[in-house]
Design a protein around this nucleic acid. Structure first.
Lengths: 101, 101
DNA sequence: TGACAATATATGAATATTAATATATACTAA
DNA sequence: TTAGTATATATTAATATTCATATATTGTCA
């Protein structure tokens, strides 16, 4: 309840909008479970073209949800935002065999 | 954890997408607090044209988030989805004087 | 019934999103 | 330096969203 630094309605709606795409939600759920993941692994697991994945990661980055850090030739992404972890962990998702990352 | 009837990733992304708009998030947060509200009141409180409000309510209805019921000449909306209440109540929103509904 | 109030729907223009292809950049190893 | 791997960015066409105006529908009451 440190109300002051909490996200405003507009900030939350930005976050929810970014999470409101199946590919991005899979990525974020995966990162909540895995802590960290590089781009190539996401590309493989989701079977989506690499530029498309980078574009989605960029949207998540702009929403303040993830950050990336270099690790040699790869870039690893992780969740940046504690609020988002709370939101995701609070949802009872039925993964029904769905593969994440 | 009755995993079977919980929303899937795709269903959740639909919900989050619907919540990912400042006007709709205000409406939903307001309904979580107020239990129920008619269209006219939302129009007044948010100072947004009536058709625009009806359109947003329709999006929320299609996402399974709210339902409306007639009460004489008015239509009252309320939250339909328990998952959504959980999501909203779990968020630490800084309303900073923002008026809801 | 007619008039009015409350809400919904239709339409369309402006804008945004999505996702693919092509290309550029950054790092590593030889 | 060069080649190769990993990732990012640019561009673009298709599609979707947003939001306003105009109009239709539904219910109430005299």
């Amino acid at each position: 309840m440190k109300t002051d630094k909490n996200p405003t309605i507009n900030e939350y709606s930005e976050i929810l909008k970014a999470l409101g795409h199946p590919v991005r939600l899979k990525i974020v759920c995966g990162l909540v479970k895995k802590e960290t993941c590089n781009v190539g692994t996401i590309v493989e697991k989701l079977s989506i073209p690499q530029p498309t994945v980078s574009q989605h990661l960029n949207i998540l980055k702009n929403a303040g949800i993830v950050t990336g850090y270099r690790k040699g030739t790869q870039v690893c992404y992780k969740i940046e935002n504690a609020e988002v972890i709370k939101i995701i962990e609070n949802m009872d998702i039925n993964f029904c065999g769905e593969k994440l990352i």
